[in-house]
Design a protein around this nucleic acid. Sequence first.
DNA 1: TCACGTATTATGTCTGACATAATAAAAGTA
DNA 2: TACTTTTATTATGTCAGACATAATACGTGA
Lengths: 235, 235
Amino acid sequence: MDAIELKENFKEVDTSSLVDKVEANLVTLLQQRKLKVGDPIPKELELANTLGVSRTVIREAMLRLRVMGLIESRKKKGAVITSPDLFGNMSKSMNPHILDQETLKQMFEIRLVLEIGMADFIFQRITKEDIAALREIVSHEPPATQRHLFNIEHEIAFHGKLYEITGNENMKKFQSMLLPVFDYVHHSGLLKKPISHKKFVSHKGLVDIIENGSPELFRNAMRNHLENHFARLFE
Amino acid sequence: MDAIELKENFKEVDTSSLVDKVEANLVTLLQQRKLKVGDPIPKELELANTLGVSRTVIREAMLRLRVMGLIESRKKKGAVITSPDLFGNMSKSMNPHILDQETLKQMFEIRLVLEIGMADFIFQRITKEDIAALREIVSHEPPATQRHLFNIEHEIAFHGKLYEITGNENMKKFQSMLLPVFDYVHHSGLLKKPISHKKFVSHKGLVDIIENGSPELFRNAMRNHLENHFARLFE
DNA sequence: TCACGTATTATGTCTGACATAATAAAAGTA
DNA sequence: TACTTTTATTATGTCAGACATAATACGTGA
């Protein structure tokens, strides 16, 4: 009788710890009661009694939920439901010094993918004010001859504004979270090939396309604008 | 003297809890020592003694790191550094029943952005085997007349394979994490407009472009393929 | 009615103890 | 000697009880 058959004959032994079970219990509690944001959940001691475990276990399980952003606990008030900030949690582990290089590279790639793919949302949701803001930003764009110096602040201002225009807060959060990663990737030698000095579509060029072009044109222009990064990735 | 001046005259009182401080301490420890994955960190009791706090506080701080995926603790061995699984953590809070609708919608949007923007990575990294696999998948594609029935399994197989081809594991993880969200978005009435039955670029059409086309063509084709979803978002 | 002090309550922190699992060390056997 | 089994050690997991602290509710007095 081999392992697979054995697995079917025996019930799976529950190897999860007490805290794991309590955590699962709490999560189903949150779901089943259809709780709204702000609703309180039972007190630590109540839970400890009804579930028959110590307060330590309850605390540890609730702490997990708190770190995940599912609840918030306040003294005297107890814990209340919160709408989890998906990327907010992630940003805590988004530390260039802790993440391995492959992960950093992949984050960098995702940035490129997002900025090319976001075209339709930009065109759908942009306002007159947004365009004015973009024009204001690109008026400070460094000339092409100096562009290889990589004026980080200007880069962040321009590309950050684009994320903002998509109206997708989570995508914007993702971007701001990635900023330290970009900084690191640029300076760490993770991408070996030097930055090329060829001429590509400028920020101003992108704004022109946003104003008079189409999502299709914008995608291609953005792809060209990012050519430097792609070239370094695909070396 | 107004509040701003006051703030400059006084040092900021740190309102953070003990656990907060210990957590910060541990994080800087991880960074400064340039620890590799698998390296052990000091035992709970050692830390408690050197930092002058109780083991409870240490445990809670370490627990946070564990939930964030920065460390893993094993009995007897103590805690060791792990490379944080960025999206793995996120998936725990990625529960359609807990997230608010706006967040769900934004996640859905990010999926569309990714699939359009990933073109260059697909073309750069695809192999003969990948194309064969794609051909195999699309050979089971439902005919256009029934496509509105939305064969979920086929959808997942095809689009999942595309993420896989990009070679970006994190992006792939992000996708698999989003699957329950898509399912929910499709069935929840979150997007009011009914699914249109017009003819768009099929999966097979996308594969043809991957084989003989260019990233530019693929982006536009994918945009067209996803037109249904965009139409529902932009109604 | 309002302001102030007091009581209550639930989380935050501390302490000490035992349980448990993984490993290392020691003992036993071929 | 080499290999297996037993025992001891160690660090985390769980427990229980206590006090500290902050936020709220209550009551009292002007």
